[in-house]
Structure formats: C-alpha cells, structure tokens
Nucleic acid binder design. Structure first.
Lengths: 127, 127
DNA sequence: ACAACCTTGACACAACCGTGTCAGGGTTGG
DNA sequence: CCAACCCTGACACGGTTGTGTCAAGGTTGT
C-alpha cells in the first residue's frame, strides 16, 4: 500500500527517524501501525510533517509550543481560563502620564556606558 | 499612592521578587515605573498575579505556555497558521479496521515481563 | 538465512526554563 | 547619613526540550 516506513518518511519530510518518533510522542502525529507495530506514514501525514517543519522554523516555534496549542484546542475549559486571564488588562503601557518613563527603556542600553560621568540622575517623585 | 514595590507585591502575591521580574521579562505583566525606575504594582496587577499563579499550578502550565498563548493572541497571522495546521487531521486513531492494534498499547507494558516465554509473537499481514 | 529494516529503552548533551543568590550601584525615608 | 529598599547583570543549578546514538530484540524481503 502507499504508506512509508519511518526511514522512508524521514527522507521525504526532512525529519530524522528519531524525531518522527518524538513528534509522535508529544502528540502531534499518530501514524497508524502495521500488524507488527511498524509505523506507517500515509501521504497525508507526510504533508503534515513537511508543513509542520516549515511552520516551526519560519515562526521560530518549538514542538512544545504547537503541542500546547493543541492542548488548548482540545481542552475548551483550559482555553477559556487562559484566554480570560490574558483578556484582563491586555494592552499596556496603559497611557503613562509622565513622558518620562519611556526614557527608561532606552536609557538602560546606554546606561552602562554613561555610568561614569553621570553624577546624579533624574530623581523625582517618590514612587 | 496605592502601589506596592516589588518586595511588598511579592508578599501579597506569593511570587518572589525575582520571579516578578521574570514574569515581566517574559511579557506577562508590565508594571509601571516610578520616575527612578522602581516597579510599581497596582491592585489590578496584584490580582492578576495571584490569578496567574493559581492558573499555572492548577493546570500544570509553565510561564512559557501562557507566554505563547499571549503571542498567539497578539499575532493573528501566527494564530491562523497554527490553527490551520492543527485543524488538518485533528482527531485520530482514525477508525482502525483491525481490532488488533489496540493490543499494542497494552502489550507493551507487559512485553518486557513476558519476553522470555514468548517463542513467536503475533506475526500477520506484511505492512 | 541473512542483511536491512523496525521496535522500545537508555545514555548523552546542548539549549532553554524557572529559581535562588550575590555583586555593584542608585533611591528613599527617618 | 545610613539602613533598607530598588535596579540590572551574572553565576549556578535542577528540570525539560530536542536530538543523536547505541543496545537488544522482532520483522521482512530476497
């Protein structure tokens, strides 16, 4: 039948056999098995594996990231809880009144260099 | 004003000061800063921090998981790509015709124990 | 029957995550 | 002015991820 064994699948997908087993282990693929336990990769999973590979490196993801996304998708309750947490106060810097704190971010880059000749920095309002 | 410094915030949230800085670093909180750069935690972020703590341990999540969920939420394109990948062939074992492969999972637990007295295992259809 | 596959399990190892702790240096409040 | 904070950066360290490799044993095709 048109199904590849693990070494063949490895060659056409760019994963190593070792990694194909690992990808299965983290739950992202579940190739069917032959009667004697051999993994069999159909055309569909081969495509899926190529796509996954491409996605991971293009977006700098880890398998664990995608695995977590899968977990979110399968556990609606979890998804809601996480989403709800993220929803609270989603966007910041939450309009800071002082135009002063932005400098902080940039200052910290030059801070070390300028540390010597700075006698007394900003110093204002007590928290 | 009603805003706590990092040690005070640590005590009321259960995080250590070190971890509060870390949680900020991974992008899950962004406490505002005083004029001299001190982190200031308002009531809202304190609550958020307690909730986060609770969520993490109740669902066995890591900060990196929630950070990734945040990334997904903020990058719609990424979310779509990941979702689309997960959508393809979402549910398996994809109805296996042979009632035989289920045994595999259970067998492998007793396999080592039974290895000695098993002269010739299943052996059927050639992949 | 024998080479060339396949299986699981284990050791190994770099890179990262989550944490603590310490150093060097500013800030603050009494 | 001094103790008690705060800041960042660094070293350390156990745990997880991602990966290779090897061992012991079953399967397959010629």
């Amino acid at each position: 039948m048109d199904a590849l064994t693990i070494h063949e699948a490895a060659e056409t997908t760019g994963w190593s056999p070792r990694m194909l087993r690992y990808v299965e282990r983290v739950g992202l693929i579940m190739p069917r098995r032959s009667g004697s336990g051999y993994r069999l990769f159909g055309a569909e999973e081969l495509q899926r594996l190529r796509t996954l590979r491409e996605l991971l490196e293009r977006r700098e993801l880890g398998l664990s990231d995608v695995a977590f996304a899968l977990r979110l998708r399968q556990d609606a309750e979890l998804r809601d809880e996480v989403d709800q947490w993220l929803a609270a106060t989603p966007e910041r810097p939450e309009f800071v009144p002082a135009p002063d704190w932005l400098r902080w971010e940039q200052e910290k880059h030059s801070k070390l260099l300028a540390a010597a000749q700075r006698p007394n920095p900003t110093l204002m309002e007590t928290r």
